[in-house]
């Protein structure tokens, strides 16, 4: 059982468990926003990307249309595509393996894999697969638990579930705010979204901030 002792295995397992547990928050939030238990579980099984999942339930739950929800979720999903670009040359897989690898290409599997760089390419591959599958299993189990729990609770406000959703978004964005530009962008986006909410159709105040991000990126490049 030397594999169990391997540091890569331990890194993967600890990340899988902690991140997977967030699934409770997602399952509960999805049900609080009007999604069924089945729909909540399907989002975790098929979309399998936390930020995108929270986005689609958040936008639609706030009264936005399907297109607004899907667009916001997809803009957040672009980064998984970039992770794929990084991972493909390391994994070197084709056919069915590549189909599976793509599905588990997320923040955590990519992050753990890249953090194993000093241990060599085989450790990087091991980290990717173990973390990808680990998060997948725990994320889905905990989503089901959260969704069933929220369904049993009834009124979401009485249990604080309506505040759990923005808190989850805050928890997702907080570690990304690394410098003044990031923080300024975060504040600008928040203010823009609040101020335009009474005037724009639901969803647009959120999607519109992607334009602010692009402007910020281009300006910084100059």
């Amino acid at each position: 059982m030397s594999r169990v002792a391997s540091p890569t295995f331990r890194d993967s397992l600890s990340v899988s468990l902690t991140v997977g547990a967030y699934g409770v928050a997602f399952g509960a939030a999805a049900v609080a926003n009007g999604f069924s238990v089945l729909q909540s579980c399907l989002l975790s099984l098929l979309t399998f990307s936390g930020a995108s999942q929270f986005a689609v339930i958040g936008v639609i739950g706030a009264g936005g249309g399907a297109i607004s929800g899907i667009t916001t979720a997809s803009l957040l999903g672009i980064r998984n595509g970039l992770y794929g670009v990084l991972m493909a040359p390391i994994l070197k897989v084709r056919g069915l393996k590549r189909v599976v690898a793509a599905h588990i290409t997320i923040d955590e599997s990519t992050g753990v894999s890249l953090s194993q760089e000093s241990r060599g390419e085989s450790a990087m591959r091991e980290g990717f697969w173990l973390t990808g599958f680990g998060v997948f299993i725990f994320w889905n189990l905990f989503t089901l638990a959260g969704a069933l729990g929220a369904k049993a609770m009834g009124n979401p406000s009485a249990w604080g579930l309506d505040a759990a959703v923005p808190a989850a978004f805050l928890g997702l964005v907080w570690p990304r705010l690394k410098n003044t530009t990031d923080k300024f962008l975060a504040l600008t986006a928040a203010v823009f979204a609040i101020v335009t909410t009474p005037y724009l159709p639901a969803g647009l105040p959120i999607i519109g901030t992607a334009v602010i991000a692009i402007i910020a990126g281009v300006r910084k490049a100059k």
């Binding site: 930020a51 929270f54 986005a55 958040g58 936008v59 706030a62 009264g63 916001t72 803009l75 957040l76 672009i78 980064r79 970039l82 309506d162 505040a163 959703v165 923005p166 978004f169 805050l170 997702l172 964005v173 990304r176 705010l177 990031d182 962008l185 975060a186 504040l187 600008t188 986006a189 928040a190 203010v191 823009f192 979204a193 609040i194 909410t197 009474p198 639901a202 105040p205 959120i206 999607i207 519109g208 901030t209 992607a210 602010i212 991000a213 692009i214 910020a216 990126g217 281009v218 910084k220 490049a221």
Partner: peptide, 30 residues
């Protein structure tokens, strides 16, 4: 590099907007 940078900034903007909208708006009211 530009694509990479914008890719880092888009989640920050969207997630911040979601925090704001989900905490202080209901339908189209603040």
């Amino acid at each position: 590099p530009l694509i990479k940078r914008i890719n880092l900034l888009i989640p920050i903007a969207l997630l911040s907007a979601l925090v704001a909208v989900q905490s202080v708006t209901t339908k189209s009211a603040i």
